[in-house]
């Protein structure tokens, strides 16, 4: 990936993901703020979904149609940034696979894949961001979402930036790398199994003693927040970008209330 000249403003397309679009727009704004602070020009092309649900359900045709739609909407930018490891991984790792046998599209898929990044790792690994201007009271624990961790190698990057948040105390939970049991449609198709996995995850979150749970994927966050809420837990659940952007003033995921100052 050739880096544009120093000083040149990068045109970054933000792919918010369909879950963020519908359920929690503040994550999109937090992502935009972090990118703008780092000197990027952020644009939000018309978007729907990366095709992951279809892909994981075995519907290759629909996946290809959605992927092509993404390629057309996003290929004109310097970079594509996604506040999700699984949707980022979908584009960066699986799009090329999808079109491997299509000479007309494989090049375009490869090209888009090579400039698509998950938000936090984009900040640290591509833009070289070392610290953020943010403060957050109290202890946080970070869950490593599977695709981000295993497909994109995201592990130290969020922890490094969280370490620069004023007042934030990062505590590790047991088995932070173990799946939360979400798995897209798995959570509804195999409810009892998913429930066992997320219950164990939540027990580990509770046992960490942290006041806030952070992660980089809204799907996993909705699953864990939903279970914690059902258990009557006080723990607040947020996307890591909200804290890094100093925008953790919306009520936490699944909590009632008003925006705080």
């Amino acid at each position: 990936m050739p880096r544009p000249e120093p000083g040149a403003k990068l045109r970054v397309a933000l792919f918010a993901t369909c879950l963020v679009d519908i359920v929690r727009p503040s994550i999109g704004f937090a992502a935009a703020k972090l990118l703008e602070q780092a000197g990027c020009v952020v644009e939000v092309p018309a978007q729907t979904c990366c095709g992951q649900p279809a892909f994981n359900s075995g519907d290759r045709r629909t996946t290809q149609e959605l992927a092509l739609q993404m390629i057309e909407a996003f290929e004109g930018y310097d970079y594509v940034v996604v506040p999700s490891g699984s949707c980022g991984g979908m584009i960066a790792k699986h799009y090329p696979e999808l079109f491997a046998d299509d000479p007309g599209l494989s090049g375009r898929a490869e090209k888009l894949a090579s400039k698509t990044f998950e938000l936090v790792s984009f900040l640290t690994d591509i833009l070289g961001v070392m610290k953020v201007e943010a403060s957050h009271k109290g202890s946080c624990t970070y869950h490593d979402s599977c695709s981000g961790l295993r497909e994109l190698g995201i592990k130290s990057q969020p922890r490094r930036l969280l370490g620069t948040v004023d007042g934030l105390d990062l505590v590790e939970m047991k088995d932070s790398e173990v799946c939360c049991g979400f798995g897209g449609t798995f959570a509804v198709k195999y409810g009892p199994i998913s429930d066992q996995i997320v219950s164990e995850k939540c027990a580990n979150i509770e046992a960490s003693g942290a006041k806030t749970l952070l992660a980089g994927d809204l799907g996993c966050l909705l699953n864990m927040a939903g279970k914690l809420s059902r258990m009557g837990s006080e723990i607040e659940v947020r996307h890591v970008a909200e804290v890094l952007a100093d925008m953790a003033n919306e009520p936490a995921i699944g909590k009632a209330g008003e925006k705080t100052a």
Binding site: V23, R24, P25, I27, F29, G191, L222, A225, R230, G254
Partner: peptide, 22 residues
């Protein structure tokens, strides 16, 4: 969404979509 809410709650969306707000 019974298959979801049988085991866990579902967070109420913030109300407007990201694309509309943007």
């Amino acid at each position: 969404a019974g298959a979801w809410t049988q085991y866990r709650d579902f967070a109420v969306p913030e109300g407007e979509t990201f694309q509309a707000k943007w």
